[in-house]
Write a protein that binds this DNA or RNA. Structure first.
Lengths: 143, 143
DNA sequence: CAAATCCCGATTGGTTTAGTAGGATATGAA
DNA sequence: TTCATATCCTACTAAACCAATCGGGATTTG
């Protein structure tokens, strides 16, 4: 029951952009260095973020990526869903009448998966990139 | 971000035992038939449940498995953790000073993963097998 | 003893993961 | 105009994981 590196790296990338793209495009290379990730692997992740309107790309020299909305308008859930697909602890939870639940005469466990899904959704949709940056400052202040 | 069949089948198996093992041992074969699962695959899952004290086995003809505690004393979380490992949406959340978080100078996202983990934990540890059986009856009544 | 049943290890085919390789395209700066 | 810096795109791959299957062995009841 894990998120893959796509979600994790993607969130790091978005945070990095939130911190650094205010004054101009940020290259994947610099993000990869700061976050200690493979640039080439980020290259594979970032198109999904672009196609879904979370970041904007500027091609050519001195190009890079910038956030397409303000950090307070982007939720963790937006990023996760784009990179990991829909939040669903099992495949079938929405399809009571399909194969998965036709097996057992009554899908007792559905309740469990739905509650898990909803609780995860609540969390990721209530935290914005701005919240995370603020959290960071708070923790640094506390040091 | 999915649970595997281990957790899903295991929970079905436990529910089946909760329904059927009150009066004596239940064979994997009969569970596999009722739940429409592979008997052999269940055979691979059930040792973990036994070793962790959730079920008890009776060997030999007319043998099978029974619950080792009452359904109200077994939580969904117990079953999930035994079959899927600890609930942790990422690997590193407990080790701020280890590799994973040594990469970035500050692990901003940790907050996110901890909250997700806690919310899942809350759900699975608050639902017992007995609760699920009751839920089933309720739904059947509503029909 | 035979059948039912749990127990155990090995193997397998398919999918996913976490990348790497290599190049095409665009663009600002020298 | 050329070069360095970027994004963009399509393959490829090695390793791990998943969901089983296979083939037996040990134990107990009838």
């Amino acid at each position: 029951m894990r998120f893959s590196t796509r979600g994790r790296y993607g969130l790091l990338l978005m945070i990095d952009l939130a911190q650094n793209s205010a004054r101009g495009p940020v290259s994947l290379k610099s993000i990869a260095e700061r976050q200690n990730l493979s640039e080439h692997y980020l290259e594979q992740i970032v198109p999904d973020l672009r196609k879904n309107g979370l970041v904007k790309s500027i091609r050519g020299a001195q190009g890079g990526y910038i956030l397409n909305k303000s950090p307070s308008e982007i939720n963790v859930g937006d990023v996760i869903r784009v990179l990991e697909g829909p939040i669903a602890p099992v495949e079938c939870e929405n399809q009571l009448d399909e194969e998965c639940c036709a097996n057992t005469d009554f899908c007792v466990n559905r309740e469990v998966w739905v509650k898990i899904r909803d609780s995860i959704t609540d969390v990721v949709d209530s935290i914005s990139l701005a919240d995370l940056l603020q959290g960071e400052n708070k923790e640094i202040m506390e040091k």
